[in-house]
Nucleic acid binder design. Sequence first.
DNA 1: CCAATAGGTTAACGAGCGCTAACCGCCCTG
DNA 2: CAGGGCGGTTAGCGCTCGTTAACCTATTGG
Lengths: 196, 196
Amino acid sequence: MATRTDAPTRREQILREAARLFAERGFHGVGVDEIGAAVGISGPGLYRHFAGKDAMLAELLVGISGQLLTGGKRCVAEADGSPERVLDALIEGHIDFALDDRSLITLHDRELDRLRDTDRKLVRQLQRQYVEIWVDVVRKVYPDLAENAARVSVHAVFGLLNSTPHLSRRDALPSRTAMAELLHSLARGAFAATAT
Amino acid sequence: MATRTDAPTRREQILREAARLFAERGFHGVGVDEIGAAVGISGPGLYRHFAGKDAMLAELLVGISGQLLTGGKRCVAEADGSPERVLDALIEGHIDFALDDRSLITLHDRELDRLRDTDRKLVRQLQRQYVEIWVDVVRKVYPDLAENAARVSVHAVFGLLNSTPHLSRRDALPSRTAMAELLHSLARGAFAATAT
DNA sequence: CCAATAGGTTAACGAGCGCTAACCGCCCTG
DNA sequence: CAGGGCGGTTAGCGCTCGTTAACCTATTGG
């Protein structure tokens, strides 16, 4: 039986490379031949693993949204102390995701409209649940904040945390831990500023 | 001779609609026939005004970057009082742009890689100059901030300010002025948090 | 040992794309 | 009043892309 840290299955390989390519050149900008070449097979061989190009994108986006939501729920469940702690956990989890899976984060807010109606609705529902978790926690920490203002702030902080893929490759970046700390401070500072 | 606030020329019409469509469905996701239809002419008629689809995107992106940079320079030149004031002016200008030209903002960090090498380099250079203006001002306001940390923070705040297009159309949004104030507070709060 | 299945291959099709060619009417100027 | 250019039109070309078809090989279970 396979242990937990096995060689990645072919499906996973394909998904990884497809995510990278989609993030780099856009969904419509990448051909199936390129995706195949990236995993060492060629073009139509992909159709032994996926129903089509759309299916790859759908699986990626649903997976991302689901992972984020699951992580968010876990933050609320585990650190069920002060809302402050939950918020910190949420921020940290989102940062980990943004730093470790840049291309997925990029896809997540860029290629949603390329999905079939049913898939897009599912992803949007997952995203909305994730946002609501944040909104609830933020409003517990800052009770004076109106609900729509809280939602705008949460979206804004997502934009802030998801900014890492936009950094030019030439810039000397801080270490991962320094980066995570900096982003965390920025996010907390942004929220703190909403309390008049 | 035409006065300043004239009916938009056909070129401008086309650029507006192209920007909107590119932002909605991606550069590769929009056909020239759609762009033509959006301005009431059909398909190849566009080639009387532009050399090609690429040229439209290039003009849009160069225009955006140039406008941002010009606005940034003006902020530094005009409000040459305290760096605090300059920073506020920069934030305000960027917010105006993000709120008034959502689709341009979307294009600006999404479709850069679809440009020809020469155009892309130009746009990147303009972008870098704009970023450097911000970095300089931020480091004057927060002298303890290291340069690369300042740059990361500036990119992050751009992500924060550019988050407005991601808001779902169903959400009840605050008024424009309230929105601008909120974003301004969030941005200042984020920067403030970098000063330990 | 044989046959089925998993996982590839190449060839090719059909649709859609950007773009060009060829043509046309309107307005404006000499 | 002639004529030229500006700003459109439709037809169609050539290419690329996603997808399917047909075929091949290796592993594996009965």
